[in-house]
Design a protein around this nucleic acid. Sequence first.
DNA 1: CTATCTGTTATATAAGATATAGAACATGTA
DNA 2: TACATGTTCTATATCTTATATAACAGATAG
Lengths: 127, 127
Amino acid sequence: MLIEVDFAGEVPIYTQVRDQIVIGIAAGLLKPGETLPSVRRLAADIGINVHTVNKAYSLLRDEGFLLMDRRSGAEIAPLMTEDPSFDELLSNKLIPVVAEAICRRMDIEDFCLTVRKTYSFIKRGGK
Amino acid sequence: MLIEVDFAGEVPIYTQVRDQIVIGIAAGLLKPGETLPSVRRLAADIGINVHTVNKAYSLLRDEGFLLMDRRSGAEIAPLMTEDPSFDELLSNKLIPVVAEAICRRMDIEDFCLTVRKTYSFIKRGGK
DNA sequence: CTATCTGTTATATAAGATATAGAACATGTA
DNA sequence: TACATGTTCTATATCTTATATAACAGATAG
C-alpha cells in the first residue's frame, strides 16, 4: 500500500502516516497479520526521518492498530472488538464539526449522506 | 454565554474558544448582530492572554463567523449562505474519523445515529 | 480636551510540538 | 559474523502556542 505525504500541509507528517494506515486497515488493504515496512525502510521510501515513522508506528501501537516486535517488526493487529466507550469519544470529535455544519446551514441528513459517501469512498480504497 | 477552557487538554486554547463560539452560534445562543465581549474583557474573564482571544476572534472573522470593527467590537455575522464546497471540506475532515470507526467495527448507521445525537446535543445548548 | 473603550500591531520571551540527524543498544536471524 | 528489527539517547532547528508589555488609530462619553 502506497503512503504519500504532503509536506506543505498543516497536518503533521506522523499524523498523516498514522491516518493513512488506519484508512488502509479500514479499506481492507491492510489485513491482520500483514507486516508493515520497517521504520527505516518506510522512512527511506517516503523521504522522511526514521523517528517520524517510529512516532506514527508507536502511536498506532498504543491505539491498538499495530503489534510491534523488536525482532520481527510491525504487523497489523487482529480485528478490534467493539468498544462502547468509542461512542463518546466519537461524539466529542464530532461536536465542532457538526456545529460548523449547522452554521453553514447544512441539513443533518445531508451531513449523514456525506458520512455514507465517505464510508463508501474508504471502503473502495480511496476512489 | 459562558466560555470555559481546559488548560490541561491537548486542544490549543484559541481553538477551544473558537469552537465554543461556533457551537454557541449553532445552538442559537449567539444570534446574528449580537456583540461579543471585547478581547480584553473575555481574556480577563477566562484568565488567558489578550492575544489568545484575538487569535480566536480573528480566525472566526476569517471563517466568516464574526464581523469585527475597531470601534464597536466583535459581533456575530449574519447567517451564512449554503456553500457547496463545504461538502468536500467536510468529507476530508471525516475520512480519518470514519476510517477509525470502521476499524472499531462500528456500523455506519450507528455512526449516523451518533451524528444525530450530537446534533440534538448541540441544538439543545449542550445538555 | 481628556479619559476610556474598541481592535490592531509590534516586539520579546518561554515552553511545547514537530522534524531532523547520528549514534548506540538489545535482540533475533541467516 | 553480518545484518536486520524496534528502541532509546542526545542534539539541533523550526514552528506553534501562549504569555507579557507597549503602543497605535479610531470612536465615544464626560
